[in-house]
Design a protein around this nucleic acid. Structure first.
Lengths: 98, 98
DNA sequence: TCGTCGTACCTTGCGGAGCAAGGTACCTTG
DNA sequence: CAAGGTACCTTGCTCCGCAAGGTACGACGA
């Protein structure tokens, strides 16, 4: 779930972890860094993203994440799955409405 | 997530576990009984549902589940949360579209 | 009448995922 | 030079979904 949201964000361009935390937190999809960093490690291990260290204009260096081709494929595969899933839930919720 | 989907189904009337499994499986939201029975136990423990044993016209007795008032409240609280969540995901996926 | 199948319940054990909390280190600012 | 923001990561816990296994009842065919 979150995993694919991250991929979607990366599809919009390179991002670094701390930035992703802020963005996802603002969107109400994430609580803390303890979630995202292990997730990003996983994505890297599965080669859905590639990373590059780059210096920050001010502060410690950042690790930037970018989609790989496999990551793009995973994302594309997720879109219809999400559409189906969310519409299934919508229908259930609708059905139970008094 | 699933928890609230079950509540939504129960909002449409009494159901028994085995039936819920079939319904949720058909909707693609559930894999097996190993998920639903512990979930139903939880709901009962939190008093979001109440249960009643009733005999089946053919086969072993069934345990029927029905929403309690608290369950209804939980369900009502979930609807807007789901709407917000799913639209947040929609936006992310949209944003990453090439 | 006896075995087998479908129904219906439940538990156990495992793996994965999110989170809070803690830890390190860099840079800027007062 | 200390404090606070930035930025990375790990550890430990808990919860949840699932596969698998286990029990028991009723029906139906051999």
């Amino acid at each position: 779930m979150l995993e694919h949201c991250v991929l979607a964000l990366l599809a919009g361009g390179e991002r670094y972890g701390y930035d992703l935390v802020a963005e996802l937190s603002a969107a109400g999809l994430l609580a803390s860094e303890g979630t995202i960093y292990p997730l990003l490690s996983r994505l890297r291990k599965e080669q859905l993203v590639k990373t590059a260290w780059r210096e920050s204009p001010s502060g410690p260096p950042r690790r930037y994440y970018a989609l790989t081709e496999r990551g793009q494929v995973a994302l594309d595969g997720f879109r219809p799955a999400w559409a189906e899933f969310s519409s299934a839930v919508d229908k259930l919720l609708e059905r139970g409405r008094t």
